[in-house]
Amino acid sequence: MVRLASLTRREVNRFLKIPRQTVGAPLLETFLYISIFGAALGSRVGDLHGYEYIVFVIPGLIMMAFAINSFTNNSSSILQQKFQGAIDDQLSSPASPGQLLLAFTLGGFLRGLLISVVTFIVASLLVDLPVKHFYILIPALFLVGWFFSSLGVLVGVRAEQFDDVSFAQTFILQPLIFLGGVFYSASLLPEPYQTLTHFNPVYYMISLVRYGFLGVADIRIWIALVVLTAATAALTYANYRMFKSGYKLRR
């Protein structure tokens, strides 16, 4: 327990040490989105699913902040420690592969959680944000955070240079998230884009989180939860296998 706690403390310590970059910047970014899409453009867009546009867009922004911060934290932290060689300190310790994986995953998860909670609190002060299905919202956000934390671990371990990490973020993550329907409802899209969206896993995440907050969804909630749970479990298992074999970590 001391081992896992120390390994996790190290990851949290890292992002709390550079708060401008790891907490300040993402919060500012989220509030810029809220200002632009909510305050400036929102009045022109009109209601979506019976909600003011600003209220409609906030659940997606909270989810996006969770996802991107979890991912970025873990991929950067692991790659940076690999570069410095500092990760050998953990790898030559008696910590098990499971403990190492859990701690690295938790680092990004906790940063994503911190930022989404702050975003939620501030957003609640600005607008009247409902929470319709609390018991769906919590597992949905948990799965989103865990999925992207795990993805960050995977990319960080596999990466050999910083370009690999920023490539994954710019060319895979951002398009998936932006096209998943953070800023709009997929039902507004013309074909074939509407059908294509259904192949984007982020679409299901956003739908779940939006359902948790607003109670509206154009997909089957239980199916989305099951699929997301399965995907997250599979990714976690793949990471575990990777840590156990020492792939790209041990020589």
């Binding site: 001391v2 120390s6 390994l7 310590n13």
Partner: peptide
């Protein structure tokens, strides 16, 4: 030093 001790299970 502190983290290292923690990885090795020291209280």
């Amino acid at each position: 030093l502190d983290f290292h001790g923690g990885y090795f299970g020291m209280n």
